[in-house]
Design a protein around this nucleic acid. Sequence first.
RNA 1: GGGAAUGUAGCUCAGUUGGUCUAGAGCGCCUGUCUGUCGAACAGGAGGUCGCGAGUUCGAAUCUCGUCAUUCUCGCCA
Length: 603
Amino acid sequence: MRTHYCGQLRAEHVGETVTLFGWVNSYRDQGGVIFIDLRDRSGICQIVSDLSRTPQSFPIAESLKNEYVIKVVGKVSQRPADSFNPRLPTGEVEIYADELELLSALAPDEKSKDGNDVLLPFQVSSADPVKEEARLKYRYLDLRRERMSQNIKLRHQVVKSIRRFLEDQEGFIEVETPMLTRSTPEGARDFLVPSRVNPGEFFALPQSPQLFKQLLMVSGFDRYYQVARCFRDEDLRADRQPEFTQLDMEMSFMSQEEILELNEGLVCHILKQVKGIEVPRPFPRLTYAEAMDRYGSDKPDTRYGLELVDVSDLMKDSGFKVFSGAVASGGIVKVLPIPGGNDAFSNVRIKPGGDLFNEAASMGAKGLAYIRVRDDGDIDTIGAIKDNLSEEQKQELLKRTGATAGHLLLFGAGDAPTVNKTLDRLRQVIARELNLIDPDKINLLWIVEFPMFEWNADENRLEALHHPFTKPFDEDAHDLKTARAQAYDLVFNGFEVGGGSLRIYQSDLQQKVFETIGLSTEEAHNKFGFLLEAFKYGTPPHGGIAYGLDRLVMLLAGEESIRDVIAFPKTQQARCLLTNAPSGVDTKQLKELHIGVTQKPKA
RNA sequence: GGGAAUGUAGCUCAGUUGGUCUAGAGCGCCUGUCUGUCGAACAGGAGGUCGCGAGUUCGAAUCUCGUCAUUCUCGCCA
């Protein structure tokens, strides 16, 4: 029976006989004495087998290799003073192996000639980078490595601290909701699951437990939470997987203010418990309008400045047609002022074909105008701008953008969404290049007062920005088209880690919202009939929030992809390299499900 | 669906304008030496379908086209 984890042993254990189990992390044969670094999930400790002191374990010690699984029984000893290892928490002690038992060796390499070679796809005990393909194929080995092991343990700590806070401190009740549910309209594509029992019909995997958690409020649970798996069949990104985890919450009888306050408490609790970090409260807030104005984004990274400046009014009468034309056709002109940008960014990079130009173009910008402020305070730019800028306009521009010698001003001109997207992107690219981002900083802020709706040009209609159950501010309810929603997003260093809203609980208001997005009563009943029905029987005012747990843990772990905080993630092609899912299935299975497939699966 | 990067030994990479490349290095692996190492050291050794398939060429890791995989990204997605 194991008596300790490897990483627990300290000087206080000297003299005790311990039994350890673990993997050989590294192995150093000195001839007459062999050192083994034994690893388990808690850490590493040094095992010694000595020809003179522990002759009975020596032959086995000699036969060990990295990643063998062994059992060790031995006495904890103080290390000789000159061989302490300060890099290991257990570095003051070592265990003399009275007994060594090999529990599991490595299989020999098939290509080995004498059958002696063993082969690991990559080194477990080293932090050297390994290509992601190999890491995913041999994920169980990748998870043995320090980095991933830490990340998964951190994830556990985060979830644990969430449960403690919500359950013990705030009285939340965890309720599970179905994984087999019905296809939801709006939003992302569903993963469908055929029903054998109901030929021709399909379940959908939940994109989120949204409707169920509202029903739980109708049921009177008052405070619900769930660590919920969600599924969306959309293309992947570094921060998007087809299955991901939300911390899902819903509360009754609380105002937006109260909900935000409780959630600040939650997030602070997590940071304190997991990282030992105190974050000042209340978190800063930005309205959606202000965030778009100052940063061009509803999830701005506020760890650095580089704020945008709207100069539409200044440029509307400009002789430079790109600017005046943009304003005349209802668009805007905004500036990204970059201190020191004059030296840092060459014209080649800004002009067509340059990387900054390409960044802008990828977001839909047609061009990238610029002004350089020289050391003597005069400006450099293309003739078309310079010739059409009066001295007053020039001075006003410099004043408003705060531009001084050495500044580079990058301009976005056109429709507001494109300008904002473009300058938001450039802002991020440039901040990274100029090292303006302090990686140790944690900036949390709420974005509030989202608009209820957003124009969908493709479908030529208004669309709910959050979802159609979001409650407008009471004072805005008379004109829903322009109303602000009681919705909020939590932004963490430029990532949206959470978002939620108060929900509509009056059917007449809900009806009006459906009308506004062009949803007929009949359609609404087809899609959400069960929810609307539920609301007939006494519905508490309620609201909630959902956190992207993977993103939150990613940020806390300092990783750049949620794949690095998910034990078994998918590749960007939505495949699992470990199990080789998805795969074709037997025609027998398909027949039972009443499914015909028109496409042959990949071999 | 579009754009981009990458793919050479188990891993990480180098490989110039196509020509001693009969493809190298570090780590790992194998054999050996060594009684205080801890990124062990030292000596020796094995290990390659240059992702795959066509093409150009006297000659291709290198050029062209296609294809597959991994990643980033636009669209998409809250």
